[in-house]
Computed example of a mutant assay.
Amino acid sequence: MTTTVACAQLALGVGDVAANLAAAEEAIEAAAGAGARVVVLPELANSGYVFASAAEARALAEPVEGPTVTAWSAAARRHGVTLVAGLAELDADDRVRNSAVLIDPTGTVRAVYRKTHLFGTEKDFFVPGDERPPVVDVEGVGRIGVMVCYDLEFPEWVRLAALAGTELLCAPVNWPLFPRPEGERPAEAVRVQADAAVNRMYVAACDRAGEERGVRWTGGSVIADPDGFPLAGHAPTEGPALLLAACDLEQARDKRLGEHNDVFGDRRPELYGPNA
């Protein structure tokens, strides 16, 4: 059985909470209308990304019980989708986090993940998380893992989610546009494809579009299959986009590479040292 997965690549604005929420709700509705059962939104989809100061980031951060996640939960329930979305979170200990929530089709928040590997100036605004990526069994869909953006760059971290049974890894991301050779895919998207292939699981990374306070976004959202090939997101797009891919999540349970190899069974962790 296939599950349609959507990445809703959005143009968002830092501090424009109402417009960001409206864009997210419109995208969720469009994705559900196109048959999606899992929808991924970008990183920091409530607040925007390019903060002028730590005070601005704190002012835009919300608790999980706040208005944005409450609205996202209502949208997930209304449209019967599983939603993974990034937000600036104010946690119970008054710390500002770069987080992602997983909301199931009943509107229940099943997981809150705090980004563990902070990129660039994020360390000026956020406290890093220290818990492993959650893996949630969503009835009628499959086992969904969650992480955020730069976390995908650490093979050890992605492997932890894979070993925990992830069939579809969902990652809200904000990829700044970096120079690349003519005709090349964004390196971030290539690494997502590698994550998918070496762990034989689906990976959906949902990027930003447009420009924010002088930062241009790559628009490189991608949904990769267990062979590492892009099912959607074969090339970056400059504007908002809705990527859709039919994913047979049961395929991610089979770690065999033909008759003789298995990407998990062939591991030799006794040789890898303490970091294995």
Rank of each mutant, 00 (worst) to 15 (best):
residue 236 P to L: 09
residue 270 E to H: 11
residue 206 C to F: 03
residue 221 S to I: 05
residue 158 V to M: 02
residue 83 L to K: 06
residue 244 L to D: 05
residue 216 R to F: 04
residue 170 C to P: 01
residue 101 V to C: 09
residue 85 A to I: 09
residue 154 F to C: 05
residue 112 V to G: 00
residue 54 A to T: 07
residue 26 E to K: 15
residue 42 P to A: 10
residue 227 D to A: 14
residue 196 A to H: 05
residue 35 G to L: 08
residue 145 G to W: 07
residue 179 P to A: 13
residue 183 G to Q: 12
residue 224 A to E: 01
residue 104 D to V: 09
residue 182 E to H: 12
residue 149 C to L: 06
residue 134 P to V: 08
residue 106 T to A: 14
residue 244 L to V: 08
residue 197 A to T: 06
residue 230 P to H: 07
residue 75 A to W: 04
residue 110 R to E: 11
residue 146 V to C: 06
residue 102 L to P: 00
residue 114 R to A: 12
residue 85 A to S: 14
residue 171 A to R: 00
residue 267 R to H: 09
residue 144 I to M: 09
residue 269 P to T: 10
residue 112 V to I: 07
residue 247 C to Q: 01
residue 240 P to M: 08
residue 52 A to D: 14
residue 21 L to S: 13
residue 84 V to E: 03
residue 126 F to E: 02
residue 74 A to N: 11
residue 129 G to I: 02
residue 93 D to S: 13
residue 37 R to L: 14
residue 113 Y to P: 00
residue 169 L to T: 04
residue 231 L to Y: 02
residue 39 V to R: 07
residue 53 S to R: 06
residue 147 M to S: 11
residue 144 I to P: 01
residue 206 C to H: 02
residue 157 W to Y: 15
residue 186 P to L: 10
residue 27 A to C: 10
residue 199 N to P: 04
residue 68 T to K: 00
residue 268 R to F: 10
residue 25 E to M: 08
residue 101 V to D: 03
residue 122 E to M: 12
residue 205 A to K: 03
residue 89 E to A: 14
residue 273 G to P: 06
residue 91 D to W: 03
residue 86 G to H: 07
residue 168 L to S: 04
residue 130 D to E: 12
residue 83 L to F: 10
residue 114 R to W: 01
residue 215 V to K: 01
residue 59 A to I: 03
residue 272 Y to M: 14
residue 188 E to I: 03
residue 59 A to W: 03
residue 20 N to H: 11
residue 39 V to L: 11
residue 160 L to Q: 15
residue 8 A to M: 06
residue 236 P to M: 09
residue 180 R to T: 14
residue 51 F to R: 04
residue 62 E to W: 07
residue 225 D to Q: 01
residue 144 I to Y: 07
residue 136 V to G: 02
residue 95 R to Q: 15
residue 176 P to H: 11
residue 118 L to R: 03
residue 257 L to A: 14
residue 262 D to F: 09
residue 159 R to M: 11
residue 139 E to I: 05
residue 194 A to D: 12
residue 236 P to Y: 07
residue 212 E to F: 06
residue 232 A to T: 04
residue 20 N to C: 11
residue 239 G to S: 06
residue 238 E to Y: 11
residue 103 I to L: 05
residue 221 S to D: 07
residue 36 A to M: 09
residue 126 F to V: 04
residue 183 G to C: 13
residue 216 R to W: 02
residue 255 K to I: 10
residue 52 A to R: 15
residue 186 P to G: 10
residue 188 E to R: 14
residue 221 S to L: 03
residue 181 P to Q: 13
residue 271 L to I: 04
residue 53 S to D: 08
residue 100 A to Q: 03
residue 215 V to D: 00
residue 247 C to H: 01
residue 204 A to G: 08
